[in-house]
Amino acid sequence: MNRAEIERAAKRYREGRPHFIRRTPLWKLPGAALGVDCREVWLKLEHLQASGSFKARGMLNRLLANEIPASGVIVASGGNAGIATAAAAKALGVKCEVFVPTVSSASKQAKLRELGARLVVTGAVYAEALEACNARQKETGALLTHAYDQPEVVAGAGTVAMEIEEQGGEVPDSVLVSVGGGGLICGIASWFDGRARVVALEPELAPTLYEARRHGKPVDVAVSGVAADSLGAKRIGAIAWEIAQRCVDDALLVDDASIRAAQLWLWTEFKLAVEPAAALGLAALRTGRYRVRADERVCVVLCGANVDPATLA
């Protein structure tokens, strides 16, 4: 993965019809506004992306870069990648079939049905839904869109970092990124490529990259907790692992209580309705799990918003 591939994804978005990908806002705030002892915190509001998460970028790039058969597209997902694929497929006028595990939230399943996708709920976790999806794809020949482990998906995710640099007018000192299968972080790390410190954040109950680094190779992990429907991969993706070894500076774990507290704080203070996966960066900052320097400009990617706001009241 390199910057040229990410630039090609951005070009596809500009030239594609219909226009689908949004240029999401970047907020630059003094660290004190978020209770953090640093110069600035940049919030990339990617939860405002089409389909409610950064996943729209990778899914659309995958569809635009490939010929789509009459059987359409197929994907397994905890929810967000499925919603993104279904939304992109609807915009392009093609069929979509989505496999989700039972842990996928009711709100995400409802959104998939609203988008017209054929929804299959199967398996307790993402890996089991993926297995069923792969078997179905062999039957139908539909274009398989992987939630995180395809080059086009990673390149699409990398356009988040391209926008951060363009909107910020400079490269931040550090970028904090939530990790499930690793598509977002390896896209971002590929764009910055050593020009910013890229830090992976994972829930303690879903530590795919953390455990891969500890063992020196990708390993299966048990997945549960508040972010399991969006950070539910049981193993870091092959592309992400290869890039992470070169371009990701650290992997840190955050407990569920801190994640939930940060999620509720963002709603209470800024009326930002984000899902737990998007709150890891703020949780790491406010708890000191990630230790900032006083002069640091740290960027936090709010990666998804597919959450029922009633749960934040």
Rank of each mutant, 00 (worst) to 15 (best):
A284T: 10
D308T: 00
L184Q: 01
I68G: 03
A222T: 14
L60S: 04
V100W: 05
A310R: 09
W267G: 05
E131K: 14
Y210G: 03
I185Y: 05
A4S: 15
V198Q: 10
V98P: 12
I68E: 02
L64N: 03
A200Q: 11
G35A: 11
L253F: 01
A283E: 01
N80W: 05
A129E: 04
G123R: 05
L26Q: 08
E242C: 02
C303T: 07
G168A: 12
C96R: 04
Q245R: 11
I68H: 01
Y210T: 12
A91L: 12
A84C: 06
S71G: 03
I6L: 08
G158H: 04
L184K: 03
K55S: 01
I21P: 07
G182F: 02
V100S: 04
Q245N: 06
V301N: 04
G52H: 07
T85R: 00
S107Y: 12
L280A: 05
L26I: 11
G31P: 09
E5M: 15
R235A: 02
A135L: 15
S53Q: 03
A228T: 14
R39N: 13
G31E: 14
R136Q: 14
L252T: 00
D193V: 01
L143P: 02
R8N: 10
V98K: 02
W42P: 02
G31L: 14
E67S: 14
A129C: 10
